[in-house]
Write a protein that binds this DNA or RNA. Structure first.
Lengths: 223, 223
DNA sequence: ACCTGAACACCGTTCAAGT
DNA sequence: ACCTGAACACCGTTCAAGT
């Protein structure tokens, strides 16, 4: 800080009073996404929701990408919070993975928001830090722990992307898609898909998620 | 077929000669994506590339989503081709997973195209059929085989999404992002990220992919 | 110091009219 | 039967001008 600096509040009290605040803008953006989906999130609609001109947004977010990264960072709030005592490392990994999944599911199109951005904010960093930490306690080298953390996160993102895509379809054309799929499933051409159809079209995403995560965790045990 | 139907070629020979063909349009769209990225793929730019008016595209693709699904389906061509003889099931799974990864990597933003659509075309269906088939031969129930196939595909999509995001960053702001990340990594606040940084910022995606896939395959062995 | 108003260069989608 | 031309209702981003 230079000798001419004044306190932030004194600085802010000069000039026009601030009409827009970044945290409120991020919250409003997430609300818009929850209501109408990510495709309907528009700089113009967000400006209207904040009762501000579009240009004003660009004083606080350099681009729409910056806004989306701030939204992803906000979604992860609390995901790295302290773990209950007495959990095995398996339970700790399961708990952390479940938290990220729930954080993405909490907002409509949350996985798409997260997958499309690269936040280096504190929520994102401390989540990865915590997950790598738990894995390192399993006698994994830093490299193996990091790679495993990446594997887990990639699985969660891919899985939740699919889950929310199914949710979006459910509101409109899911029955049509299912019929189309069923019609395409000639048992002669796709013998295994015929046997897989029930599982493929089931909505037991909790079960699917647990299956995939357990596969990864079991693979870890053999290291 | 009704008694009044004629052969397709006879039908097509009546009226104006067809200016636009769907497979050529899909190929041109993939070329546009390869050149300028998915964000630059526009119905208008595609129409211009095909020397056609925008409205014409909508006679062949109901929406842009339909076009993207056709692109995803095209990307998977060959992925379900016959497997070499004499591979163990582990090697078969590794081969199939590697094929999907390479198919997504072959086109710029390929993972984003794939993740954003739901094709029920023959390439997509036969890929899943083949993967489920290989897994069923491992004494897995249809349900377990299907869930495992989903797990593998979700991991591949999540992983490749990340890999191509890093590629996109590399062409412009990757050094800036890395500096930003390094600056944020206070070892006091994020003790595990400090140890993870080298792996986290490495570009050994082949190694990361192999690690993740092996984790899943090893987990399978314990079933 | 912060916001307004207006513009620039685009989008996806639709549809009457042509041939 | 298939395509053109033109429109509708939007976009993200920029920037001079106001207060």
């Amino acid at each position: 800080m230079g000798p001419t600096s004044t306190s932030p509040s004194a600085q802010r009290s000069r000039g026009r009073p601030r009409k827009m605040a970044v945290p409120e803008a991020v919250a409003a953006a997430l609300r818009l996404v929850d209501e109408d989906g990510l495709d309907s999130l528009t700089m113009r609609r967000l400006a209207a929701a904040l009762d501000v001109q579009v240009g004003t947004l660009y004083r606080h977010f350099a681009t729409k990408q910056t806004l989306l990264a701030a939204m992803a960072e906000e979604m992860l709030a609390g995901c790295a919070g302290p773990l209950p005592d007495g959990l095995t490392w398996r339970e700790q990994v399961t708990e952390l993975a479940g938290r990220l999944r729930m954080a993405l599911l909490r907002h409509r199109d949350g996985a798409r928001v997260y997958a499309g951005t690269h936040s280096v904010g504190p929520n994102t960093l401390s989540y990865t830090d915590t997950l790598v930490g738990v894995l390192r306690e399993t006698c994994l080298s830093p490299e193996a722990a990091t790679r495993t953390a990446l594997t887990i996160v990639h699985f969660i993102v891919g899985h939740t992307l699919e889950e929310q895509a199914a949710q979006a379809l459910a509101e409109s054309e899911l029955p049509a898609t299912l019929t189309l799929l069923h019609a395409a499933l000639d048992p002669g051409t796709y013998p295994n898909l015929a046997a897989a159809e029930a599982t493929l079209t089931s909505t037991d995403f909790v079960g699917h998620f647990a299956h995939g995560l357990n596969l990864i965790i079991k693979g870890l045990a053999g290291e």
